[in-house]
Design a protein around this nucleic acid. Structure first.
Length: 785
DNA sequence: GCAATCCACGTACCG
DNA sequence: ACCGGTACGTGGATTGCG
């Protein structure tokens, strides 16, 4: 008996069987039952593009013959587009996905076939695209129920028709979330799965149940077994962790392997496995590593669980254990320490859950918007998210997906940045073009498929300034269609949530969705200029920035015609003296002349510029202070230096009192000299951007990294190294010591005064004629403001 | 021979 | 594995003086 099954799609996977592939759609239905729908009707395929001069019928026969040995199901001639150009293609449908790429390779060599496309799209991705099925949203399918057998679900269905999205906007179901935090005991440095057991594994679920597993003796076998049992008993939909893709799951997998424990936590009873983009996949559930989302929040400089929690205003644990993560394994050796480690793990798992409350909505909506399953939307780089989104759109337009090809890097000219007028300015309005690059791409129909190749005749084109690339005015290009849709969807959502209660579930969901849409919209220009992009066409990116520069130049010209003084500008913004009438006139004129929306973003009561571009600080009417580009905004300065600079900026912007600022700096200097500053505030964090042996010059953070490695710590590319500068002779890199190995009394306080505190303070103070000796001596100084 | 100067390297920011 | 534009500290090579 077939019935209509509605389900919210949580995970998708497929298995090849001799009879063909089986696609598994894991979800939650309206009654809150965990269900899986198996679709056996969906077959893999690719396209063989017919060369312009070849006879399609002839090519079809040739392709058919060549595909036979690969389990051909059918071959058909279809009309598609490639970069906007109509093409004939043979759609080759095979029984099994294993043979797809091999078959395409053979077919690609045939006469009359210019290339094969889309053989590199995974079947599960293909399924989502072709059926328009949305991960993290409601879909439905005609299906008949069967017995669930071994599967860990409430119901199993066999699809009798094609799955499709539910058009109606429905709230998501309540997800069962489980947070994890693991402590392994390391003898030195980082724990090694081959050697060091897991000693504590804390879990917390969305019902508030906290369950901690501990290892008593040397073996963690029982811990692992009871954990697996518990996961199956609670049956989470989403498992969240912090660093779980790279550390937690691989660690558990290795420990289970060594202990002969089956880590069968998936809904098929399968063990976790590493999959696309390096995420760990747990069949039937969504494994979400919150670190992946924190990584993409630039305001969180240090990507630790604590600083992420702090950023989201998550209250610190009640019991301040004063334990650093790196000390935990050592504590395990003492009787008293073990209790602390357990409480530590439990505090941390609460933080993971709290972080999930702040991030999961966005993750879910990002998955929904780009159409990638929830478990790997976080691990995929921005470029791939955009691309996944574009692939779904391309299918709707009958556009073939271009192959990924390796290309040489070819730089092009970017945005225009104005020199600031140094000093303090009063009442400055920041005016910016909203979504400038997307808007320009829409306005001038900039797109891979509208570009007129050099030398080709065409009328009715837009010609980019400076670079001369031409784009057909009609029909609307791929990017114009996609971007207008994105902008429209976002503004609709924003309009809709205005009427909603901010604390309501729907508000949170829709707000997260509009942020996800914004993320993708803003990334489209960058995607267009990425040589790794399937739809990369350099002139597209180059023309976009060229029109951007022309736009801002025209804006500047308009301002000067209206007698409006511009004090700064960057890419899509101008900072002007806030004269309300003039500004209004200006905004109107710019919109008329250029045809793009420009609006006041913020108004600074006071704003301070140094000589440098991209660095300033301003105070708003409500007293909030923005600090842009300066040391305060950077993650690679010691906290103490940033604090000095923040204080100086605040004093100057709020009170205009340079003298007070100077004496504040003097206080800080005295404090640093006295050695009263905690080590934590002296740590400098820098990222390892390449393998240690690839560095051409010796650098402090690289030397510190080497010392950590020697001491048994694990460090990989992309990790941040925290070090302090200690007393001693020689180069700076010889004096850099990992902060976990340093003690407060060996700190080179002189370095922190001369190279951290003073430069950070002087950056701002030299605007007022303050000299370095004004900070180090106690004599009087003069200044002007 | 050595200090001053310059430039490349490296990192992180802005929009 | 998203773009180019920009600032700035540090190391190391080069330059300039003698």
């Amino acid at each position: 008996m077939a019935e209509r099954v509605r389900f919210w799609l949580l995970d998708i996977n497929y298995e090849d069987t001799p009879q063909g592939p089986e696609v598994y759609l894991w979800g939650i239905d309206k009654q809150g039952r965990r269900v899986v729908v198996v679709d056996r009707e969906f077959l893999p395929y690719f396209y063989a593009v017919v060369s312009g001069e070849a006879d399609p019928g002839e090519v079809l026969r040739r392709v058919e013959a060549a595909s036979k040995p690969y389990g051909l199901v059918k071959c058909e001639l279809v009309d598609r587009r490639l970069f906007g150009k109509p093409v004939k293609a043979v759609r080759v449908v095979l029984r099994n996905s294993e043979n797809l790429e091999k078959c395409a390779e053979d077919v690609g060599k045939l006469e009359g076939v210019s290339e094969c496309l889309e053989d590199d799209i995974r079947l599960s991705v293909r399924y989502l695209i072709d059926n328009g099925v949305n991960p993290c949203d409601w879909n439905e399918v005609e299906a008949s129920e069967r017995s669930v057998g071994e599967l860990r679900v409430d119901a199993l269905y066999t699809a009798k028709g094609k799955a499709q999205p539910v058009e109606e906007e429905l709230p998501p179901p309540d997800l069962r979330v489980m947070a994890l935090y693991m402590v392994a005991r390391a003898s030195a440095g980082s724990p090694k799965a081959e050697r060091d057991p897991v000693v504590v594994l804390s879990t917390l679920n969305s019902e508030g149940e906290l369950k901690t597993f501990t290892a008593d003796g040397l073996s963690d076998k029982e811990l692992l077994e009871s954990f697996v049992e518990y996961v199956l008993r609670y049956d989470p939909d989403v498992i969240v962790g912090y660093g779980s893709n790279k550390v937690l799951w691989p660690y558990l997998m290795k420990r289970c392997e060594l202990n002969g424990v089956k880590l069968s936590v998936g809904r098929t009873g399968a063990e976790p496995h590493t999959s696309l983009y390096g995420h760990v996949s747990i069949t039937g559930r969504a494994n979400v590593d919150l670190f992946d989302f924190v990584r993409d929040i630039p305001d969180i400089k240090l990507k630790t669980l604590e600083s992420a929690a702090e950023f989201f205003g998550i209250p610190r644990p009640e019991e301040e254990l004063g334990v650093e993560e790196y000390e935990v394994p050592r504590l395990w050796d003492s009787e008293e320490g073990r209790g602390r480690v357990v409480r530590f793990a439990e505090e941390r798992v609460r933080m993971v859950m709290a972080l999930s409350d702040s991030l999961l909505d966005f993750a879910v909506q990002l998955s929904r918007v780009v159409g990638m399953p929830l478990d790997y939307v976080g691990t995929a780089a921005v470029g791939f998210k955009v691309e996944n989104f574009l692939m779904r759109q391309a299918y709707r337009f009958g556009e073939l997906v271009p192959k990924r090809v390796e290309r040489p890097y070819m730089p092009y000219v970017g945005a225009l940045v104005l020199k600031p007028k140094p000093g303090v300015h009063e009442d400055i309005a920041v005016l910016d073009f909203s979504s400038m690059y997307p808007s320009l791409m829409i306005k001038y129909n900039i797109s891979p498929d509208t570009l007129v190749p050099e030398g080709e005749e065409a009328e009715e084109v837009y010609t980019a300034p400076e670079v001369g690339h031409r784009f057909r005015k009609e029909p609307p290009g791929f990017y114009r269609r996609v971007l207008s849709e994105l902008l429209k969807v976002r503004s609709e959502i924003r309009e809709r949530i205005k009427k909603l209660d901010k604390s309501s579930r729907l508000y949170r969901v829709l707000d997260a969705r509009q942020r996800a849409v914004k993320t993708i919209t803003n990334a489209c220009y960058g995607y267009a200029g990425w040589t790794g992009a399937r739809w990369y066409i350099r002139p597209v990116a180059e023309a976009t920035t060229a029109w951007g520069r022309a736009t801002i130049r025209e804006t500047i010209k308009t301002a000067s015609e209206l007698g409006l003084e511009i004090v700064y500008g960057d890419t899509d913004s101008v900072f002007v003296k806030y004269d309300p009438e003039k500004v209004e006139e200006f905004l109107k004129t710019v919109e008329e002349r250029i045809g793009l929306r420009i609006k006041p973003d913020k108004i600074y009561k006071r704003v301070l510029f140094t000589e440098a571009k991209k660095r300033y600080a301003g105070i708003l009417e409500d007293g909030r202070i923005d600090i842009v580009g300066l040391e305060v905004a950077r993650g690679d300065w010691a906290e103490i230096a940033k604090r000095v600079q923040r204080d100086v900026i605040e004093i100057i912007l709020r009170e205009g009192d340079v003298r007070k600022a100077v004496s504040r700096v003097r206080e800080y200097i005295a404090k640093v000299k006295s050695g009263k500053v905690p080590l934590k505030d002296l740590v400098i964090w820098k990222t390892l951007t390449k393998e240690l042996d690839e560095y051409k010059v010796r650098a402090p953070h690289v030397e510190a990294a080497k010392r950590l490695l020697e001491a048994g710590w694990e460090l990989t590319l992309g990790d941040k190294v925290g070090y302090v500068i200690v007393k001693g002779p020689g180069r700076l890199y010889e004096k850099a010591k990992p902060y976990v190995m340093a003690s407060p009394d060996e700190v080179d306080t002189d370095y922190y005064v001369k190279k951290q505190v003073i430069p950070a303070a002087m950056r701002v103070l030299k605007v007022f004629g303050v000299r370095e000796r004004d900070l180090t001596s106690t004599t009087l100084f003069s200044y002007s403001m």
